[in-house]
Design a protein around this nucleic acid. Structure first.
Lengths: 209, 209
DNA sequence: CGGCATCCGTGACGATACTG
DNA sequence: CAGTATCGTCACGGATGCCG
């Protein structure tokens, strides 16, 4: 458990950084926004974080009300970490960081790890104004978005937990172009960069664009 | 000069944190958003940062295109650091952090430093929708806001560089209440928590509310 | 005096090994 | 599986010194 090293400034941004400014913390929040995760899963999806730092961060986040730990009912006897409402309120911070970081993203470097759900935030933004459960299929994996949902989970790893209102299949390059505003969502559909399937209102609306 | 320690993730938020995730970096950006600053001024307004870390961060920020260094014409022979356009684009990140951090702010601790312009970001948000040059007077000092300005500087330390469209005098508690949405701007004026002076359209509009 | 560079002690970080 | 223990390295914070 790390000692609290505060900036000691009466400034709300500095206070926020006191809590989430440590290395890895915001990226752990990003992982937990995709749904409850076990320690090992977190460790696997955050290459480079050492086991003790991850354990320490999770303790800090529990203490600070960003995450909770829940024991799963047997069998399994594992425990999962979940983001709290307070932690979920960090979504705008991650959104702002992600939008700024788009310009730094560039080409994928050989040393870069990739996970499908890392594209959930930019896609959520590209789908702003729409509504419904959307399943997204990339080469790197599948995740789903709760578009327009006020609170509760905003996205999750893996296939949609129910019949989605639309299924999108696209590649990372299209994701990036959408995130940078080079393409509009409907432009990309029209250009054949996104394959839209499904019977929901949203799917039909996107196809007929 | 610190070695670049990257997260090595193909994710725009992680890339952003590669650049601005180091300790002090975002707070230096916050300082530079208030206008060009000399090294010594930065060091004075960031209590706790050591001289070498500040120098190292400024170099990193120059290399990363967040800030530039400019030599002042003699006499003085000093140099100032200025935020670049790219650096100024971090404003939404600081806004999001600041809004989240409001809930953590609480009472001022005895160890907390305070500077007047640290309240510029929350006040800018409270003045959203308005327009003009606003001078703000707190007990802790004076700063000014370029409300509704698309690009260029958004706020500055000290008195307004020209005749402001409105002058506001208020205290920190009112700032906090505005930032947390407990009060609307016009409510606070009506309740006498903000003293509005000046002849500009904005001043009149706020007074007659 | 402003703008760092250097040195030093402490602590955070990352890798690996190990344990309940 | 879910961490804890250990250890080498590096970053941070504080003080001081140098140099224009």
């Amino acid at each position: 458990m790390s000692r609290r090293r505060s900036y000691d400034q009466y400034c709300s941004a500095a206070r926020a950084l006191d809590v989430v400014g440590d290395r890895w913390t915001l990226l752990i929040v990003r992982e937990l926004l995709a749904g409850p995760r076990r320690y090992t899963d977190l460790h696997a999806d955050l290459p480079g974080v050492s086991t003790d730092v991850l354990a320490s961060r999770l303790k800090d986040m529990e203490r600070d009300g960003l995450a909770t730990r829940r024991r799963l009912p047997p069998p399994g006897a594992a425990s999962v970490y979940e983001v709290t409402d307070r932690g979920r309120e960090l979504l705008p911070v991650l959104q702002a960081l992600g939008e700024w970081g788009q310009a730094e993203l560039g080409e994928r470097r050989p040393t870069d790890a990739v996970r499908a759900h890392w594209f959930a935030l930019p896609l959520l933004r590209a789908l702003e104004g729409e509504e419904g459960l959307v399943e997204v299929r990339l080469d790197e994996g599948v995740f789903h978005l709760f578009v327009g949902a006020g609170d509760g989970p905003v996205y999750g790893d893996g296939a949609a937990p129910a019949e989605p209102d639309a299924r999108l299949a696209l590649d990372v390059a299209t994701c990036t172009a959408l995130a940078q505003g080079e393409w509009g969502l409907r432009d990309a559909v029209r250009a054949g960069r996104i394959d839209v399937t499904g019977d929901g209102t949203l799917a039909k609306a996107l196809r007929e664009a």
